[in-house]
Design a protein around this nucleic acid. Sequence first.
RNA 1: GGGGUCGUAGUUCAACUGGUUAGAGCACUGCCCUGUCACGGCAGAAGUUGCGAGUUCGAAUCUCGUCGACCCCGCCA
Length: 605
Amino acid sequence: MTKNLSFKESFIQDKLRTHSCNQLRKSDIGKQVVLMGWVHHRRDHGGVIFIDLRDRDGLTQVVFNPAVNKQCHEKAEDFRNEYVIYIEGVVQPRPADALNTNLPTGEIEVMVHTVKLLNSCRPLPFQLDQTTPVSEELRLTYRYLDLRTPYMANIMKTRSKVTFAVREYLDKQGFLEIETPILTKSTPEGARDYLVPSRINPGNFYALPQSPQIMKQLLMVAGIDKYFQICRCFRDEDLRADRQPEFTQIDMEMSFSTQEEVFRITEGVISSMFKSGLNIDIKLPFTRMTYKEAMDIYGSDKPDLRFGLKLFQATDIMNNSNFKIFNGTIANGGVIKGLCYPNGAKFSRKELDDLTSFAGIHGAKGLAWFKISEDKFQSPIAKFFSDDQLNKLKNMGRANTGDIIFLICDKETVVNQALAALRNQLALIGNLIPENQFNLLWITEFPLFKYNENEKRLESEHHPFTAPFTEDIDKLDTDPLNIRSSSYDLVMNGCEIASGSLRIHNFELQQKIFELLNLDKKTIQQQFGFFIEALKYGAPPHAGIAPGLDRIIMLMLGLPNIRDVIAFPKTQKASCLMSKSPSPVSEAQLKELEIRIPKKKPKDA
RNA sequence: GGGGUCGUAGUUCAACUGGUUAGAGCACUGCCCUGUCACGGCAGAAGUUGCGAGUUCGAAUCUCGUCGACCCCGCCA
């Protein structure tokens, strides 16, 4: 047992703290106080010992002076980093030359006259003083230590405040918070489900919800009128910096509602989050843009509007040249789009090669570039084009001397995807993105369907419960790919942070949509039968949206990944380094579930 | 499934082109120090260079495989 640690003493009995470690100020001088917390730093001068006592909220310097209390001082000699201690003492002013202006409590200190060791601490796997960086691998393995750091503690506090603000706002707007099942039903379409085997019904599985979509619509049928839930969603897909297999949505649904009302409520939710989390007043209402506009000008349905670099059409200008690759691609239905990057003529050959391979990662087969100098177009392919073409290109890109124009020629989807990625990349390397700016943007009028080339069938762009755009509804049988939907996304700084739609509340229309998605009658009946049935019993018109809580907080705090806003996140391989999950289970457990794991074949077999 | 970056003491990093006993800061241990706040001083302990093969007289360094972390593509209604 650690020196000086007695089990008896280590329980605090009936004593409570009088203050947190970020509470005492000059006005408290003279008070008797009780503080408890962690030893953040110990400074031992042989005589007097200073300890920075830390809790969630901050630091307070506590002083052990042998001249004041010998026993306390002797105990403090053995204290080490992260020991948990109890102190009683008197708040006193610091000497005028020993103030610490870096600490809110820096004008005072507590002279200790009673001390108890509540717990000791082994040497740490990493230091918590944030003076040296720590690998994330280690932080995740000892997440409970990582969460003690002011950095993580502050994120958790902000997250809590923001979440509370959401509840408060939606409660005032008349929303009911209702929980929906975590053990629910697997449905086709969408992401891969996490499955949970049923012991009582062997061979059958629950699915964890990708979102409570159907349940919240059923709550509308149930007359709940306005529902919300801060709910966990699960999707068994590969992870990214901004994607975790379980994440939290602010799930909302409202009856007898319109897009305008959903926007108003959502803008209220978001602005209350910013107000409570950052004390920032977000400008309302948010900007709006149609999907078509966004794709035309930015090549993306989540454009970052904090910088320009708009795309332009160059198909007509650059067609019919001596450059056969362009001509051929256009003849096959391809397009040329481009963007002008100011002062880009100074890019080296290596930088351009890097940008070309970057475009390649995002699907482009090549990246054409034209450096603009006085009366000259420097480019490996300039020779294939007439002066007239090149001048028109310069005009189209509004290029000046010293700029560079990039062109990509391919199928429109590829062109847009690659140029949108290139646009973001150029903004990044050119430092064109202003800091501390929050650009919120509604994208509307998404297509209802997209075509899945592999499966040769229509897929929902949003989800199958999305209502078609009223004006386009008669195209269902004739021109489904050109139907717009009543769905909308909210984009912040080029990141999708919410997605929603007006829903289908008519069972015949819902059935029709399922059929267009090429789901056979049996599947529809098995997977969605109960839902279609519900729509037959007086389902009201309803609409909803689901902002992603983790992502919004990540962006609000300007963090590079979503893991930092989640207390116990998973690694890119979806495992928890701390608990080592997922992990094998016992034969007995598997037997109970009637699950057999096939033996792994040796690799060379 | 694919591409890329990385893995050295508890930790953060170093170790030149393959060449002596793999070094330093912090943490840790011991001693000293009564106004520090990333306190200071002296001394010490601490290494399967992720793991496994291979090349070589010789591997932290080169090659292959494997495990893990991160970023990206595919995927994510």
